[in-house]
Design a protein around this nucleic acid. Structure first.
Length: 156
DNA sequence: GCCAACGTTGGC
DNA sequence: GCCAACGTTGGC
């Protein structure tokens, strides 16, 4: 039996890692998540083949720029053990890692950015509880329903 | 570069 | 276990 495909939105700052970077490398470990809720989505819920909306944040304009897929189930993020890394976590141990991540594989770059501004205008269709457009929400990884996925793709 | 929102930390 | 201080996110 094939697992049911789930959908996610993952934010990345294009200055750090953009959709074009992902297109170039093909598959990338999603290092550096240091938020428990975001980690839990990766560790507890992501499955191989899940759909990912790739979102550019902290740029102009912010928005969805393409799609990717989850390439593997979660495993410990090695940067937590690396003293030299910006993401080093002194409280993490090999025996008890704190931070897990998945690898993400490039699927497609949108012909254009579906901007946050446009997405906000679709609040009625997407639902007010959609975390991306909920006021003050800063989650870098959030779940997307099949209906939201379809609707967001239709905006391209 | 500003700053609102919010998560985390640590003193008590 | 409260909560102030602090750090980070991310839109603008």
């Amino acid at each position: 039996m094939t697992a049911r495909r789930r959908y996610w939105l993952m934010k990345s700052e294009p200055d750090t890692f953009s959709i074009d970077d992902l297109a170039r490398v093909g598959t990338e470990p999603w290092t550096g998540v240091r938020n428990y809720q975001a980690r839990n989505f990766m560790r507890n819920s992501m499955q191989v083949g899940d759909g990912v909306l790739f979102y550019h944040s902290n740029c102009s304009p912010p928005g969805i720029v393409g799609t990717a897929t989850v390439a593997c189930t979660a495993y410990p993020d090695p940067t937590q053990f690396d003293r030299a890394s910006h993401y080093f976590d002194p409280k993490a141990t090999q025996e008890e890692p704190r931070w897990h991540m998945v690898d993400v594989t490039f699927e497609r770059r949108f012909k254009r950015t579906v901007t946050l501004d446009e997405i906000k205008r679709e609040a009625d269709a997407l639902g007010e509880d959609f975390a991306l457009i909920r006021r003050g929400n800063r989650l870098s990884i959030l779940p997307v329903t099949a209906a939201q996925w379809q609707h967001l793709l239709s905006l391209e």
